[in-house]
Design a protein around this nucleic acid. Structure first.
Lengths: 290, 290
DNA sequence: CACGATACCTGACTAAAGTCAGGCATCATG
DNA sequence: CATGATGCCTGACTTTAGTCAGGTATCGTG
């Protein structure tokens, strides 16, 4: 009764029998599912028709008809794309925005209702994050981002908080060598964020220096995304970025308290070198030639 | 981007867009979803036509047609109910059982594949258990069971294992006063298991004594079911059982390391009393008059 | 500016799911 | 044993989703 497979299948049963209950917000407003999905996709900022079609996995003919029906309802308007007259762009009308808001309210109410069932909401949320990340694993996108963007700053904040928890002496950014944003921006470096849907779940920085090498900084993977080998993917992406920038030598520093990171480095071609900076936190130093 | 509601909604999106992927076993054998669901319901032991209809939420006309199509395929046979000629009972033919086994194999393979995606399967499973329990919360059944049943023994095993982890000195059943099974069986006592679907997720024992009171023993809630206020439900059920057996006074012993249990007792009408036994593990003793 | 590629649209079709009214045995009850 | 209720079945219908083969306007390229 308790082998892993039957546990997974129990979860599947629970979820499939509850998908209705999980998110019936697409129903309940007298509109077929397909049309509701398109309306909500537009409401969430997807305007390009091809993009919506792709996101929802719809046939081009079907997509066309769904758009027409939303237009007939007066919820959506389409116009030609600015740069390319073949492409079409859909936007919500005023009525459409109202209708979208109604869907959002329904969906939020439902989510709150679900959370209220449980007295330890944080544990429930963590479990949901973990499963969502696993399910959408194929769709985790590594995106180069401005190091001062909201997403990047969120990741860094979580990263610092985690160091604070894991280092015996805590962690104070101001004591560490906080990399300058411009060193993690082209052409000197790069900053890459792993996005699952709209949620940042990991990051890595490539920091240019003037000493003939670049440094890997701020490698972080959200707790809910651990086990998906995302750290490795982020490192690969950082190395790719370095190659593209013509960087031949990489260095990084880390702390032996972060065991899984050290293990990752060792297993991917990095080798330990002597200390190469005076940052107080790291006690392990690595190098890799590309 | 990180408020609880949007995390729940992210989970919903991930799950709904993956339900297909979660369990496509219903597809892939060249049979429409409806027919496959009926076949699998019968395979899982639901034979009464009305029961299947109810379980799957089908219209009686549609159900009839689906059954006919399965009969035409030679997978299912129906006959009149023994006691009521109006009702019909469906059973799988030999071919039907083979086909059902194929669906089961697909479903198992898919579950295994999903687990393989993740390098920390245990964390993933724990998260799935937690969510499945929350989703099926309304359907958690408290069932009086034989204390030597598989379900009861599984719960007790988990309970002892948890005590071993939480007591500094560990836990050895043989040193504790292990209640005799016959004391937790009518008419002297009771043993109640909380079942979610087919999974035991909690238990409590009511142990009769010859000293004018009964004891509450072995209150346990699976980690995946914590936060659902199941401990309270189990205690209520145990007290109900005691009342029905004419027991007017309850006692229990516990350990201060189990803080949440102590809190539960204090908040539900129990009050602390002096030690009433010489068991080495407990250090807190409670009594409640019914 | 010819030409193939691209983005979207339309018409014609199918499959699946579901609804509804009515019909026929069978059952429980007075 | 007449009568209404129950359980299932059948026929006729609708809605939704989806497929596929063209068709038209626009784009990028030589």
């Amino acid at each position: 009764m308790l082998d892993p497979v039957s546990r997974v299948r129990r979860f599947n049963r629970a979820v499939t029998s509850a998908v209705g209950a999980l998110d019936t917000s697409f129903l309940g407003r007298g509109r077929p599912l397909g049309a509701a999905r398109v309306l909500n996709a537009i409401g969430h900022g997807r305007s390009d028709v091809a993009e919506i079609r792709d996101y929802l996995g719809l046939d081009s003919g079907l997509m066309s008809r769904l758009l027409r029906s939303l237009e007939d309802e007066g919820l959506v308007e389409t116009e030609a794309h600015q740069d390319d007259g073949r492409r079409r762009v859909a936007t919500l009308t005023r009525t459409g925005r109202r209708e979208f808001a109604a869907y959002e309210a329904l969906s939020n109410a439902q989510a709150e209702g679900f959370l209220a069932q449980h007295s330890q909401a944080e544990a429930l949320l963590a479990a949901m994050d973990l499963i969502a990340s696993t399910l959408t694993r194929q769709r985790i996108a590594l995106v180069e981002m401005e190091p001062r963007s909201n997403e990047a700053r969120y990741c860094l904040g979580e990263y610092y908080a985690e160091l604070g928890r894991r280092f015996k002496q805590g962690f104070d950014v101001s004591l560490s060598r906080d990399p300058d944003a411009k060193d993690m921006r082209r052409p000197r470096g790069s900053f890459i964020v792993a996005m699952s849907d709209t949620l940042p779940i990991g990051c890595v920085g490539l920091k240019g220096t003037d000493h003939g090498y670049a440094e890997i900084k701020r490698l972080w993977v959200a707790p809910a995304a651990r086990g998906l080998r995302l750290g490795r993917r982020l490192m690969d992406a950082a190395e790719d970025a370095a190659r593209k920038l013509g960087i031949a030598l990489l260095r990084l520093d880390t702390n032996s308290a972060l065991a899984e990171a050290g293990q990752l480095y060792r297993s991917t071609g990095w080798h330990e070198i002597p200390r190469f900076n005076d940052d107080p936190y790291p006690d392990l130093f690595f190098e890799k030639r590309l």
